[in-house]
């Protein structure tokens, strides 16, 4: 029976859903539940990763070090993972202290054509003897051939797996099949897939990824994540079991963990709001939705207009400042009409 490695970024991607306000007690509660369920890797931190707490993408309630300390104390068998995006995080300020705090695995991410900015960070993690994965973000923007070229760079830097992220929730299963498929065929390291649920495709796309050769999948409790959320981990585990794959995760306990998350972490359950559908269609990073909602209210605009305009400009994660620019321009345009 083929094994699928499940990574759980509930406490990282979910950070977007609550404006990066996850508390110490919430981290502790969910880590305990995830650990008990046997989830192999638990990812913790600001939604945009280490060193990302900022006016641009949102200030965190807790410092990075504080989050890692609490997670470390509450994980026994699950590995503790962080997300690192060069351009926000640096080796000296962020990565070094995180590894000293007991992090086991690091995902070093870059937008889909930018793999070479991850070289130093991936090498650093490997030199320290920790697990290093490469993540390509906003992968709907480029062809499968480009993704393969970028993924190969990550592999050459020492990445022990490459994860394609559908950061805008824009993929359909056919896209997954092609893009994951070409990587699985040509890379010598495992390939992973990280879904967003904007078009209600997260589980279907994850299934398509496995069928195309992926052996790493991401899921979050009840889909708690940016925008419309991610693949619900408890459903993912059940579906994989039904398909005959093993995950090493206890189904009852992961179902319990998702209830713990709903009770402790979520004000509202993730759902596909109209703006999430538009965000998926427009190919805009799912993490923008809270910011767009706020700015739309402030400038009395339809958030859907903002999303389409952002899509036209092909914005990527980290360009949240453009939301205000687009809003100011749209409201000026309205005045002149």
């Amino acid at each position: 029976m083929k094994n699928i490695l499940i990574t759980d970024p509930t406490l990282r991607d979910g950070s977007h859903a609550v404006g990066h306000q996850i508390s110490a007690a919430q981290i502790a509660a969910y880590c305990k539940a995830a650990d008990a369920a046997g989830i192999p890797i638990v990812e913790v931190g600001h939604g945009n990763g280490m060193g990302a707490s900022s006016l641009q993408v949102g200030l965190s309630l807790l410092e990075d070090g504080e989050m890692l300390k609490i997670a470390r104390e509450n994980l026994t068998t699950s590995k503790l993972e962080i997300f690192v995006l060069p351009g926000f995080a640096t080796i000296n300020k962020d990565l070094k202290p995180a590894l000293e705090a007991g992090v086991d695995a690091v995902r070093v991410a870059a937008h889909c054509t930018e793999a070479d900015i991850t070289e130093r960070h991936i090498s650093f993690v490997r030199e320290k003897g920790k697990l290093a994965y490469g993540c390509l973000m906003m992968t709907h923007m480029v062809s499968k051939e480009t993704l393969l070229e970028e993924a190969r760079k990550m592999e050459s830097y020492g990445a022990q797996g490459v994860i394609l992220m559908d950061s805008a929730g824009a993929y359909l299963p056919q896209d997954v099949k092609e893009k994951v498929g070409i990587l699985a065929e040509h890379l010598n390291v495992p390939v992973g897939f990280h879904a967003h649920n904007n078009l209600s495709m997260a589980v279907a796309n994850s299934v398509a990824a496995v069928e195309a050769g992926a052996s790493i999948l991401d899921g979050t409790a009840k889909g708690f994540g940016a925008g419309a959320g991610n693949t619900p981990i408890e459903i993912l585990v059940a579906v994989l079991e039904k398909m005959g794959y093993s995950t090493g995760i206890d189904l009852y306990k992961v179902l319990d963990a998702s209830d713990v998350a709903e009770k402790e972490l979520m004000k509202v359950l993730p759902s596909i709001k109209p703006i999430s559908v538009i965000s998926g269609l427009a190919g805009v990073f799912a993490g923008f939705s809270k910011h767009v909602e706020r700015v739309a209210t402030e400038y009395k605009l339809d958030p859907r207009d903002i999303f389409f305009e952002l899509g036209k400009r092909k914005v990527v994660a980290g360009q949240e400042d453009l939301i205000v620019e687009v809003a100011i321009q749209l409201s000026q345009k309205r005045k002149t009409q």
Binding site: S54, Q56, G87, F88, A110, H111, C112, T113, E114, I117, M138, M141, V142, R313, K314, V315, V316, A317, G318, Q319
Partner: peptide, 10 residues
């Protein structure tokens, strides 16, 4: 704080 974003758009 400084942030640098590389945008791949064409």
């Amino acid at each position: 704080k400084a942030v640098l974003v590389l945008n791949p758009a064409q």
